[in-house]
């Protein structure tokens, strides 16, 4: 026996959540060739098929690109701090890709390791993730190379499997998932299945072995010299989590804001003295691979990459984890 829901019922359910005051985010078409995870205005905005995956990731809703930590006002010699402790509204992320949802446990480690990040955790507690198992993969997908698969429910509260004819099987993995779908589904005999994953594109262990032993190596100059040093890879990655803290506003005070940062920026490691320990792009590309395949795994036991392929898909010059890791494997 399985639980199923029709596409129209799913849209109606999303509309119901919105009407009930929840913030509902999911894939939506922004331009003819651009699909992004966005806050949906209606159930009809939700895009369920006809694209590989959104160009951004669901981290936007848990670790937003700009988060106000607190406000402040400066008057003469006194500073008044204004706490930002308003509770986050409940949110549902619907039709997330498994490679997005799987990044949440990765982020959980980082934001709860030596410091409990109240902003992330507050949002995380208020969020329910409903994943849609993949029904296609493209030449940039590589989840199977980092230990995931297109039907993985890691990080999901519920997962949907397309059955065809606008029907989806619903499997709830957590209490939060049940709270959304109990009583909203129908019984059926049909069960769904995700596609088999993309063929394994590289060996993650070999990549780890290479990066930990080839810190100074001509490889980096040969294969990463064309990196232009933008933050596209990090910002469209579901698992990249580096941030900066900036003062936004006038000198008289406004807000202290947490913003995304990227190890590909030249300012990321720039010292006040002017020295930069990672002087050029090859060293910065090495850092990104090193962090994902060696540093994070050493600390938390898993790879800091879910194989979504966004970094390669979005890179203006065709780099990204997939390109570099395959070069390491074949080079």
């Amino acid at each position: 026996m399985s639980e199923i829901i029709s596409q129209s019922a799913l849209r109606a359910l999303a509309a119901e959540w919105i009407a009930g005051g929840k913030s509902v985010a999911g894939p939506a078409r922004v331009k003819p060739d651009l699909v992004l995870y966005r806050v949906l205005r209606s159930g009809d905005d939700l895009l369920l098929e006809g694209f590989q995956r959104p160009s951004n990731s669901i981290k936007d809703f848990l670790f937003p690109k700009a988060e106000k930590l607190y406000g402040y006002k400066i008057r003469g010699n006194s500073i008044e701090l204004i706490e930002n402790d308003s509770p986050e509204p409940a949110q549902v992320i619907i039709a997330a890709r498994p490679c997005d949802a799987a990044a949440l446990p990765i982020l959980d480690h980082v934001f709860n390791w030596d410091f409990h990040d109240e902003f992330y955790n507050r949002r995380r507690a208020a969020t329910t993730v409903v994943t849609l198992a993949c029904s296609a993969h493209d030449e940039n997908c590589f989840c199977t190379s980092v230990g995931l698969d297109p039907g993985s429910d890691r990080g999901s509260d519920a997962i949907l499997f397309a059955l065809g004819n606008g029907q989806y099987e619903v499997r709830c993995a957590t209490e939060k998932g049940h709270a959304l779908f109990d009583g909203k589904t129908e019984k059926s005999e049909r069960t769904g299945k995700a596609i088999t994953g993309p063929e394994k594109r590289f060996d993650a262990q070999a990549v780890r072995a290479f990066v930990t032993t080839h810190f100074e190596d001509p490889f980096w100059n040969e294969h990463a010299l064309t990196c232009i040093g933008c933050g596209t890879c990090a910002f469209s990655c579901p698992a990249c989590h580096c941030f900066d803290i900036v003062d936004a506003g006038s000198a008289a005070g406004n807000a202290r804001v947490k913003t995304w940062d990227s190890c590909q920026f030249s300012t990321f490691t720039a010292h006040a003295s002017g020295h930069n320990p990672r002087p050029a792009q090859p060293a910065r590309q090495r850092q990104r691979i090193l962090h994902k395949f060696a540093i994070y795994p050493e600390k938390f036991g898993e790879i800091l990459c879910t194989g979504c392929g966004n970094c390669t898909r979005n890179c203006p010059v065709g780099l990204g984890v997939l390109s570099v890791a395959t070069e390491i494997n074949h080079g």
Binding site: L36, C230, G231, F235
Partner: peptide
């Protein structure tokens, strides 16, 4: 509002 300040526009 969609800009994430990745500065790809500047870097290319």
């Amino acid at each position: 509002n969609r800009c994430v300040k990745c500065y790809a526009c500047r870097q290319v």
